[in-house]
Simulated assay, not measured.
Amino acid sequence: MLISRCPDLESFKFTSSYSHRPQPESGPPMSLGQILTGLSSLDAPLKLKKLVAIGIVVAPDDFRLHLRHFRYLEKLEIGWNSDPDSATHFGEICAILHAEGIHLRDITGATIHHPAIIRYLASYSGIERMILRPSHPLDDSTQVINRFFSSVLRQHRNSLRYLELGLNKNTAWSRLLGRDLMIEVERCQRLEELICWVYVSLEDKRSNNTDILVSSSLFLDQALMISS
């Protein structure tokens, strides 16, 4: 295995063409366990700092099996995971990171509602880059959104430089969140770039209401990009 021949490897990115709408002929998606087969034979663990997995299944058991290679992990990105248990998997991975005291500085995830995710993100400070694209129906919970802004964002207000919330989809994260929540963003004094998605419906377009929606979001002193 090629990876096992690179003992000084610090960054690993794997992108699969397996999309979130796979075709029948595609077969089952590839898993992290399959990709990392052979690492268990290494005498010394890798010191991976960056792990990016796009379009593959990242199961907690596979993550735990290779945990010795993730002790120095700073960046974790898991995206386009088509597995129906992906939200639970991400929560359990965050629980592993929490239990092992591994503090990420850069995280990208597609869900937030699992209790272990917010618990982990609120357990320490120091995240510099955070991208959250909540797409699970349970992510739209008012309680989940409030907990993110009041506990997670508050913990990282002194370190956060890049924040991206939402995605091009009609969710609670792409609607106006209210000034009381966005004030927590405004308190991130080191923030250099903020990307929010603002959902504009066909009715808003017909009513010429799009300018109001966008202008209602532009009250921050920080650099703000609005995508609609």
Rank of each mutant, 00 (worst) to 15 (best):
D43M: 09
H66D: 04
D62R: 04
H114N: 14
V58Y: 02
A95R: 09
Y18S: 03
M182K: 07
G101W: 00
A122L: 11
S16L: 12
D85K: 13
S207Y: 00
S123E: 11
T142G: 09
S16E: 10
K205V: 04
A122M: 06
P45M: 15
S141T: 14
A122E: 04
N146Y: 08
L167R: 07
I96M: 11
D61Y: 12
L218Q: 15
S228W: 13
R161N: 10
Q189Y: 09
L39Y: 04
G38A: 10
P28S: 15
M130L: 15
S16P: 01
P137S: 13
A116P: 02
D106R: 07
T142I: 11
R206M: 09
S19R: 12
L191C: 03
L36Y: 09
R21G: 02
S215D: 12
K49C: 10
K50F: 02
I35R: 09
R64T: 15
V52S: 04
D139C: 12
H136N: 15
R119D: 11
S26H: 09
I93R: 01
T142E: 15
S141I: 13
C6A: 12
Q222S: 11
T111D: 01
P84N: 06
W80M: 06
G91T: 04
P60I: 07
D139E: 05
D85E: 13
L2Q: 07
W197I: 08
S31P: 14
I118P: 03
R161F: 01
S82Q: 08
Q155S: 15
D62G: 01
G126N: 11
R175C: 11
S16T: 00
N209I: 07
R105E: 06
A116Q: 12
F90L: 10
V214C: 11
V200N: 05
D61R: 14
E193W: 04
Y162R: 06
K50A: 11
L121W: 04
I112F: 08
S86F: 09
